[in-house]
Structure formats: C-alpha cells, structure tokens
C-alpha cells in the first residue's frame, strides 16, 4: 500500500502520522529542528524560507494552544498565516469538509495545518488534493481524533534526544489515558521507529486500547511496577469527561493509582525526565511537586515544539 505521506522519491510531502515513516526522515526533522532552535536568540527571529507562502490553519476542533505554536512556527519561517476557525463558520452552514478544502484551494494555499475531531480526516484531505490535482499543497496533521498528533510526537522525541542524547538504551513509560490519546499513538510509533528498546504503557484497562501489544509496547496496570528504572516518563492528560464514572470512578481514585507523585517518580532512574503534552491537570495525573520539580522538562517541550514545527513545515515546503 502506498504511503500517502511520501512522494515517489520517498520524500515527505504531507505529515499525517509518524507510522510508516522511515527513521531517516524522523532524524532529518529532528536535526533540522536543532538548527531552528538558535533563531529565537537572534535580533531578527525569522528566516525567509517560506516567504510568500500561505499557511492555512484549519482547526475544525478548537485548540488555541496548538494553533498558536503552528502560527508562531510559520511566521518565524516568514509565511503568511491564516487562521480559520471552522467550527463556527462553514460546517455550521452544512458545507462538507471537502467543500471547505476546495474553497481554500482556490485561495492559493500552500499548506494546510489541520486539526479535526475525526481520526483520519487529514488523510481524506490529502487524498482529495491528489484527486483534484492539487497535491502541491502540503498537509500537516495537527491532531486527528484519537489517531495521531505527529508534531507532538516529534517534539517529544526532540526533547528525549536533547536530554538523553540517543534512543538506543532507553526505557520509556507512557502513563494514563492511552485509549483516547493521539499523542500516545504518535509517541509509540516514533519511539519504536527510532529504536527505543523498551516502551511501556501504564494505565487501567479502561484507558488502554485493545491489542496494544501489537504496537510494540509492554502493558502495565501497576504504575509502581511500570515506572521502575525508566529513563523517560511521559504523562498524558486525563480529559475531564473521562473522570465522570464510566471509565474511572473519580479523579481522586485515578490520582491514587496513576498520578505521578515524587514517591512514584523515585522508582524511575534518578536522572529520569518527566514530560507532559499539556495542559496539565495538577492533582489528577501529576503532582505539582513533580510538575514544578527539577526532573520536569515540560516547558522545554514547548520551546522545542516551535523549532520542530518549523522543521516540518520547511521540509514539506521544499519537497
């Protein structure tokens, strides 16, 4: 099956998922991101790579935070950025997703950054662009349903590489609501592609997808056991709507079993880093003492996120 993210030369033309991308492409993105990191220290915090290009932020699902990071990244590349909050406009008038896309194509877009509540929506868009002969427009998945959030996955990898130097000898634990998490799926694919020998998923059975082992991870229900000797701990956000009883009895009981406290973190390696895609629920999945502690690298993730998104956009625009 042809991977719609790659052109016939094997170059990245859309970033839809980490799954199926060769290690070389992931490493290239991380290496390029390293070069962008220094730009923010300069007098002019911009490079002219995407000058004259138009990046459309298509957010069918609200997320000011993610949209802003893409906007900053595009602007640092000198692109023109248009933010379209589609939840409130066209779909409300009954326009289909592909109608919206056709309309925007006519506005000379060069790149679509897509956030959508349905898994696979960016694939549909990429497929449509190819069908109508507009595959010169690049698609970046900024989160689709439960499926993927590839730039978050990449920035997590950047963070891990920054602090741990390489991936070959690491033990990484992902804790929490993996069932509903596109971040977890992207992290798992990225970690296994980059050669991390041991990826652990920790959570109650209600929050872990079926057949998770097939994705190359080891499943733990006991957090104390799962955290033991880990180099990296990735905490996931627990959405409010999951706490109301059907999947978990309460936020308090969840915290008791799966909240990251200094005592639980002590089971990991002493130099383990703690990551979180944000926004955090303090006292639900993470204790403030850990979130603000010396092992947390959560704010570094945000900084790296901009550089990684710049790298992704500039590599796509060049292919």
């Amino acid at each position: 099956m042809h991977n719609p993210q790659l052109n016939s030369n094997g170059e990245l033309i859309h970033l839809l998922s980490i799954e199926g991308l060769p290690r070389g492409i992931l490493t290239h993105i991380l290496d390029t991101a390293a070069s962008f990191l220094g730009i923010t220290d300069r007098e002019v915090k911009k490079v002219p790579l995407l000058r004259g290009k138009s990046v459309f932020n298509l957010f069918f699902e609200n997320s000011t935070r993610t949209r802003t990071t893409f906007e900053i990244a595009a602007k640092r590349l000198s692109a023109d950025v248009l933010n379209l909050d589609i939840t409130r406009s066209s779909t409300a008038k009954g326009e289909t997703l592909l109608d919206t896309i056709d309309n925007l194509c006519s506005m000379h877009a060069d790149m679509f950054v897509v956030r959508h509540a349905s898994s696979g929506a960016p694939y549909l868009i990429a497929d449509h662009l190819k069908r109508v002969g507009r595959d010169d427009i690049h698609v970046v998945n900024a989160g689709d349903g439960r499926h993927a959030h590839p730039t978050q996955g990449l920035l997590d990898m950047y963070t891990i590489r920054h602090f741990k130097k390489n991936f070959e000898n690491l033990r990484v634990a992902i804790v929490g609501d993996i069932l509903h998490s596109r971040v977890a799926r992207s992290d798992i694919h990225a970690l296994t592609t980059l050669g991390v020998p041991e990826v652990r998923a920790i959570g109650p059975q209600t929050l872990l997808p079926t057949d998770l082992g097939r994705m190359g991870v080891q499943v733990y229900h006991d957090m104390n056991e799962g955290l033991r000797d880990c180099d990296v701990v990735i905490m996931l956000r627990l959405q409010n709507e999951r706490m109301n009883g059907a999947l978990l009895p309460s936020a308090g009981e969840y915290f008791k079993h799966y909240g990251l406290t200094p005592a639980k973190l002590a089971l990991a390696k002493p130099d383990a880093i703690v990551m979180h895609p944000g926004p955090m629920n303090r006292g639900v999945e993470i204790d403030s003492a850990v979130a603000d502690g010396p092992q947390a690298v959560i704010l570094d993730q945000v900084t790296f996120g901009i550089a990684v998104r710049m790298a992704v956009m500039s590599i796509l625009a060049g292919n």
Binding site: E11, T32, S35, V47, P48, L49, S314, I315, G318, N319
Partner: peptide
Amino acid sequence: FYRDDFAEKGL
C-alpha cells in the same frame, strides 16, 4: 534557510 533555490531544490 536563506538559499534562493529552496523552491526548486528543497531543504
């Protein structure tokens, strides 16, 4: 990041 042939040759 400043090349003028970025559009043809990519990054």
